[in-house]
Design a protein around this nucleic acid. Sequence first.
DNA 1: CGTATCCATTCGGTATACCGTTTCGGTATA
DNA 2: TATACCGAAACGGTATACCGAATGGATACG
Lengths: 220, 220
Amino acid sequence: MDTNATLPTLAETAVARLREQIVSGEIPGGARLAEAAVAQGLGVSRVPVREALVRLERDGFVEFSPTGRARVKELSPGDFEELFTLRLALEPLAAKLAAPVLRADQGGLKRNVEKTRRAGSVREVTCLDLEFHELILVAAGNTRLLSLWRSLRGELELWLGLLHRQHQTRTRETREETVQAHLEILEGFAKESPAVCERILRRHILGWRDWLPTFEEVGA
Amino acid sequence: MDTNATLPTLAETAVARLREQIVSGEIPGGARLAEAAVAQGLGVSRVPVREALVRLERDGFVEFSPTGRARVKELSPGDFEELFTLRLALEPLAAKLAAPVLRADQGGLKRNVEKTRRAGSVREVTCLDLEFHELILVAAGNTRLLSLWRSLRGELELWLGLLHRQHQTRTRETREETVQAHLEILEGFAKESPAVCERILRRHILGWRDWLPTFEEVGA
DNA sequence: CGTATCCATTCGGTATACCGTTTCGGTATA
DNA sequence: TATACCGAAACGGTATACCGAATGGATACG
């Protein structure tokens, strides 16, 4: 996507590493992220860590106490509802806006689905799933809409990771369900009006909510 | 709102000062914000300035070049459209969610309108206007929805400041139009169903877009 | 006159050091 | 036994210093 010529900054790599550890559950929800400790763990000074924490907060992975202490965000069922509500507000809108664009050029989405077909792990499917949705947001051409969605994406990834771990989801099933659903969306973009595309995404998100109603406790 | 007991951090005060200078136009759109210069201007070191810039980016006042250079965000008509689209997606939704709460307790909104009645400057009206809308978002009880809106608020404030400056808006007019519109919304929350409240907000935002169609160029 | 090149300067990224505040466990007291 | 108090350690906020990269203007070349 962004083949940045400049070397990745230490803060950026810190973001990436922490993000990975948080999503994978290696650093559990609610865990303290003391600057010094994280810095030592990554072999850098506190400065880039500090910056990384701020960015992770923006992306929904981390939250700060009033006194500036950082913790990994805890997931509560109420949070899931909030997230669901917002996806339902943003993604169908994005689909409507993106419809004309995606009717003309489905290359990106198709490539994504192909990659998903060949995915070898649940984690990989999850990433590609998120990428699929992000491609729609990008095609919508509203940069602010995109950044709003991105600020939700982190937490979304957190949920998907957690749920898959609890579910012990099978790769094959997940992959095929995902591919199936995305193909339907793809077909919609090819044939239907923007308004219908909007409804299709709406249904898709609604289905996503049903996908995991079996969870009661999300203990650490 | 948040009567924080802890002393405001230098970074926070830097955010507040820069924000004020940007909104007032003292620092024009597109202006470079070199860390060292800003730091010297505020009489602090680069560290808190650095953090302030990151936050201002999150709040839509500042943007970074790929090489990390910060500039005050430039306003283009396309940006205004994006902002409009997103307000139209978020605020009616918030109104629907907030309706039950605001039917039961209109105290906050009423106090806001009273303050607006007594506002002595266009700037003050603008702030209270934004606060009115934010109160609805708060009442909606979706913390993520609120933070999405907040990330738009900065840019919104930027626009309102610019437009009022260009318009040479009169305090009295602005104040009375605002109060009038907000009273109608208030009445809706008192009497109508969530769905109707949603539509009322929708109309309000649509009206806001018409409020300023006369602008072509937004030169620096 | 236009264009490419190079160098001085600016600027951001990071490390380190210091300070005031917050935390938290242990002790003394009611 | 529960609670209030106290002190040491932990932690975040900030200043300063250094380095390498980016920038932009002057100079040399076509």
